[in-house]
Design a protein around this nucleic acid. Structure first.
Length: 321
DNA sequence: CCTTAAATCCGCCATG
DNA sequence: TCCATGGCGGATTTAA
């Protein structure tokens, strides 16, 4: 996806009993004009079934859009559902299915994944949901690969996010996809949230006493961020932290939710992305500075995770005149 | 695309 | 008994 000339339409599907927090997230991210960020923001609309609808906490939606108009939008956001135990509203499920069949981008927040699963559009895909409901989702829909360890999943036309606040991470990710990292970072700043949360939902699943090693790795992570251009290995990192390789890997996963080299590669890709946006450095220089090594390696990982080649990305998202 | 060598990383388990 | 550690095997991923 790329920056669009005409406003990209985002529709929020509202049904009875939906918790208001997950409703507020897309409203905050997509629903307010953001003067100064980009020329065109999203065209945002709320869609609700006809008749008296009561959402949580005594609020009721006022909108002229019914669920049948979901499929007119480019992106459909399904917030958390009323209950993961009851059947999902048939009207909502079929409306989401219809939008999917028309090639729209479908997004779920939190337990909204149950609606997508009921519509059959998660079959064969990797998806996530709130960690409390991940087992239930996997049991009820064996065709869905449920990954409770991540904050969100991006399968191109279908995106899902983990519990509650992770919906904010996903919506910001969508802005990053549509408008580039510079706009997403500026928006994050306005929302007073980190532009990118490292790690995944995994770090929150452990209910017990907070892992006190979590902060311990901080200095190491900071050091790594500042020396991306070096050929960092597990042995290097373990040596700096005075840990054995096995313990480093274990602590790393406990603290960040990912393995060390996976984390490092993501940081490197972020840096490469930023260099592509803000500088005119040749690709091999960017590969070197970000620590991705060769241009071939940069291209390989970049296209795999971002979806477009580095040169295409630069052409679309460069902030230079 | 391929092949191959190296690196990563996680389950397992003895150890302290 | 409980728990973190760290060595080892090897499946998987990555670099070239």
């Amino acid at each position: 996806m790329n920056a669009r000339a005409q406003a990209h339409t985002v529709a929020l599907a509202v049904t009875d009993g939906v918790p208001i927090f997950e409703l507020a997230i897309p409203c905050e991210v997509f629903g307010y004009p953001r003067p100064g960020l980009t020329d065109t923001w999203y065209d945002f609309r709320v869609c609700a079934p006809a008749g008296a609808t009561r959402i949580a906490a005594g609020f009721a939606p006022v909108t002229e859009h019914g669920l049948d108009s979901l499929a007119d939008a480019d992106t459909i956001v399904v917030p958390a559902c009323h209950s993961v135990h009851d059947a999902q509203p048939a009207e909502l499920v079929s409306a989401v299915r219809a939008a999917y069949d028309r090639g729209r981008r479908i997004v779920s927040l939190c337990s909204g994944a149950f609606v997508l699963a009921a519509a059959g559009i998660l079959d064969g895909r990797t998806a996530t949901t709130h960690w409390m409901h991940a087992d239930l989702l996997a049991r009820r829909h064996p065709e869905v690969r449920v990954d409770a360890s991540v904050l969100y999943t991006d399968d191109g036309d279908v995106l899902t996010s983990a519990g509650t606040v992770a919906g904010l991470d996903l919506c910001l990710h969508i802005v990053r996809t549509d408008h580039g990292a510079a706009v997403a970072n500026a928006l994050a700043k306005r929302l007073v949230m980190p532009p990118h949360r490292p790690g995944g939902q995994a770090q929150y699943i452990d209910a017990g006493p907070a892992p006190d090693h979590a902060d311990e790795l901080g200095p190491l992570l900071d050091w790594a961020r500042e020396h991306l251009d070096r050929p960092l290995t597990i042995a290097t990192l373990a040596g700096r932290a005075n840990l054995t390789e096995r313990t480093l890997i274990r602590r790393f996963r406990a603290a960040t939710g990912t393995a060390p080299m996976t984390w490092l590669r993501n940081i490197r890709l972020d840096h490469a992305r930023s260099l592509l946006e803000t500088t005119a450095l040749p690709i091999d220089q960017i590969a070197e500075r970000s620590g991705l090594g060769s241009p071939a390696n940069l291209r390989h990982h970049f296209t795999r995770t971002v979806g477009v080649s580095p040169s295409t990305y630069r052409r679309v998202f460069s902030t230079r005149a």
